[in-house]
Write a protein that binds this DNA or RNA. Structure first.
Lengths: 242, 242
DNA sequence: GCGGAGGCTGATTCTGGAATCAATGCGCGC
DNA sequence: GCGCGCATTGATTCCAGAATCAGCCTCCGC
């Protein structure tokens, strides 16, 4: 569809070319969709809401997306893709598993800080896909989990973690802890306007996962420091209860 | 609604009284709803499906439940209630926090073993709550989380866990790990027909949470071994998720 | 400036499915 | 046994909201 411009190599400098505009429109709609979905949920909103939010006509949404499902699908893809590749990058680093876990947690919380609406949609609508669900991103998610599982398996070979634990389950737990940590913010159990709280949360999620709540202090003997040990002043306070 | 019977104290022995029958019908519909919801998701099914599954007429569903939402609400309540009270019971036990955590994890996995359909609906549809959501179970969930948070706070006072961790976040993480552990079965990442796998999973979830993946093996030195291992036969069964 | 391709519009159509309701007959009290 | 009331039925109504479509109007190339 962007073919027109080619014939004339230049000409594309001043005002945006038609193709560019279209791309922008498409993006605007996508962004609006994220917005609306995060506010009212996929099933709780109508295409009209998305159109209004994006400031375009109802019908235009259908010009860019085959139907509502495809719109959701696209939202996922645009959000998921970046996230997945970053997580994958962390997984593939050649460092101690503890560092990789911290990296993964960091990526997740960072994404949240950057775009909590988007993350909310992913968390709330993903995974909960009705069983055989249309939107298959369950597949994408499964893939990361499997990647992480492989990471843990490798860590076992290296002797970084005990051999008797199940790598798959461990992987699943990691994302569960992350997801729930984020959910706490989304549901308001923790206060997301407190920027520091997000950092602290990320930190604690990683360290708890690595060392548990009992051993905490010493277990991270492994190498890098004790996490929170020094910044003990931080602790909880206003964050609970929304 | 059960008023008729009172005037005549007896008469209620042989065949079930009308009231009893009604209660049964209601339960049948509820069960059918769990079934259908778990298969196709709340939004993915029509009332007609529920009616058919329950073997009753379409309209009867509306005799017992005001509307579809209330039906879902009831499903939650019937499932949630039993679960919540059990978790609460574990929370209130006067033992080391490690034992309590193990207890909670056990309760969750046990519920799953007993009625994975019901648990699936809870996991998949809860949280879904469209923000200001009609169905407020977010509230119920939040309550357990707060209860658990209080438990951790108390544990800190007793010196059972480090003082610098955030009790609320810890509570949230616990349920996150549990939820994701179960989700793994629901999504098929782990095989739920392998009964032993469920036990192992429960065990690992608890131990990882307590001791982390690094220390794992030895950390449960804490004291008792898997508290629950033996008493699995205990409690009543069917009342939850009717 | 001219012609037309196609982005864009929103009223209109269409549909799935929620909720209603008048009719039926079973069961219970008298 | 009689009659009333309430559980039960499923066709009917009703509507939200998805998807369509016929035309408008902008912008592009010539």
């Amino acid at each position: 569809m962007a073919a027109r411009r080619e014939s004339n190599g230049k000409g594309s400098r001043a005002s945006k070319s038609r193709a560019e505009r279209e791309a922008e429109r498409r993006k605007a709609i996508l962004r609006a969709a994220v917005d609306v979905f995060s506010k009212k949920g996929y099933h709780g909103c109508r295409i009209a809401d998305v159109a209004r939010e994006a400031g375009v006509a109802y019908g235009l949404v259908y010009h860019y997306f085959k139907n509502k499902d495809e719109l959701l699908e696209s939202v996922f893809e645009s959000g998921w893709t970046g996230f997945l590749s970053r997580v994958q990058a962390e997984i593939e680093k050649d460092v101690h598993v503890a560092a990789r876990v911290r990296g993964i947690v960091h990526v997740a919380f960072d994404a949240y800080r950057r775009d909590h609406r988007g993350v909310k949609v992913l968390i709330l609508e993903v995974g909960r896909s009705p069983a055989g669900g249309a939107v298959n991103r369950g597949g994408a998610f499964t893939q990361v989990v499997l990647g992480a599982a492989e990471m843990f398996r490798e860590a076992q070979r290296r002797g970084e973690i005990p051999p008797q634990i199940d790598p798959s389950l461990t992987a699943v737990m990691l994302f569960g802890a992350i997801e729930m940590g984020l959910t706490a913010f989304i549901l308001g159990i923790l206060d997301r306007r407190d920027g520091a709280a997000i950092d602290r949360a990320a930190h604690q999620v990683a360290e708890t996962f690595l060392s548990g709540i009992l051993g905490s202090g010493q277990a991270l003997a492994v190498g890098e420091t004790h996490a929170w040990t020094e910044k003990s002043g931080t602790k909880s306070k206003q964050e609970q209860l929304g």
